[in-house]
């Protein structure tokens, strides 16, 4: 266990020092790493620890991106715009969570995918506000590309670090214990005194907040948004896959998954641009068939068996 944290610390040091020695390409790669780490760690709270199969990541990523971008377009300073985006996503996800967390299993999964679709459709058709399919230009951060690269790397890093801290807190705290009970048997959790509704909403909002913050930073970083980029179906699938690749429900799993996934993407996929979706598909097939517990489950110092595939789920009626 300790080796893992040492490796993590080394990785963080490399990442933080990137602007000093790495070129633009590496800084960009590092920023993407942090972005996906934040997303995967966020997803892990609801999808891994709580066991709710959420594919709503892109809905909150996009909501945060648009909220931040629109605030910036309305001349709000960037950090304030990000804060506003986080508040907006927290509120929106709480409302949505109250509604869809009553669903379980397959229905929850379908509901969560529908959220992404609805969000994209709304962003596309509400063109007075969002620019619709024409996209939305976000003010560019002054100070030159290198300065901007550094600012966005550190901003994404901060979001990822916060998500990691939240993951640790959940793992060792009362909320995390409650969420694990829900993951194991929701009715039984209710019976032993877990306020399942409140805990699930807390998990959902936490998970959404990190997606929203990431989205807001992303919007400022790319300085341009359109509905299919902000509410990307690819993103909504990729993020859970990354978390599962490392090990869903574990603290470090999502980070491991993101690093391996992004490294593969950079090394392999950049050479086969037109095969992007296909390679992702093949990777998923390989992951599901040969690595059901994720990479961390291969390690000898496994803390606990990955809590998955325990029994066939009761068909939702």
């Amino acid at each position: 266990m300790r080796t893992r944290y040492v490796l993590l610390a080394v990785g963080v040091a490399v990442l933080v020092l990137l602007p000093a020695y790495g070129g633009n390409y590496l800084v960009r790669f590092g920023t993407f790493l942090c972005m996906y780490a934040a997303l995967a760690l966020g997803w892990n709270v609801i999808g891994g620890v709580t066991g709710y199969p959420s594919f709503a990541t892109a809905a909150f990523f996009g909501a945060g991106a648009y909220a931040g971008a629109l605030l910036q377009v309305a001349h709000t300073p960037m950090p304030l715009a990000w804060a506003g985006a986080v508040v907006f996503v927290a509120a929106a996800s709480a409302v949505v969570g109250i509604m869809i967390l009553r669903l379980r299993g397959h229905y929850f999964a379908v509901g969560s995918i529908a959220l992404v679709e609805v969000a994209r459709l709304v962003a596309s058709s509400w063109s007075d506000l969002t620019g619709g399919g024409m996209g939305l230009n976000v003010p560019i951060l002054p100070g030159g590309p290198e300065y901007a690269g550094m600012v966005f790397l550190y901003s994404m890093f901060a979001v990822a670090a916060a998500a990691f801290a939240a993951g640790l807190w959940i793992e060792h705290g009362k909320l995390g214990f409650a969420l694990r009970c829900i993951q194991q048997n929701e009715d039984a959790a209710d019976m032993v005194g877990v306020n399942t509704t409140a805990c699930k909403i807390a998990a959902f909002v936490l998970s959404a907040v990190f997606a929203g913050a990431t989205g807001a930073v992303y919007a400022s970083w790319t300085a341009y948004l359109d509905p299919s980029d902000a509410f990307s179906i690819l993103l909504t699938l990729k993020v859970p896959v990354m978390a599962m690749l490392g090990g869903a429900g574990t603290v470090l799993g999502p980070i491991v998954g993101v690093v391996v996934f992004q490294a593969m993407e950079e090394l392999l996929w950049s050479n086969f641009l037109e095969m992007h979706h296909a390679i992702l598909g093949l990777m998923i097939v390989g992951l599901i068939f040969f690595l059901p517990g994720g990479l961390l489950s291969l390690g000898a110092h496994r803390r606990r068996a990955p809590a998955r595939a325990t029994s066939r789920e009761v068909p939702a009626e």
Binding site: R180, C181, Q184, N185, A188, M191, R304, A305, T310
Partner: peptide, 11 residues
């Protein structure tokens, strides 16, 4: 308690 016991199986 339940007729059909309800543990958290993997805990």
């Amino acid at each position: 308690t339940f007729q059909i016991v309800q543990p958290f199986p993997q805990m």
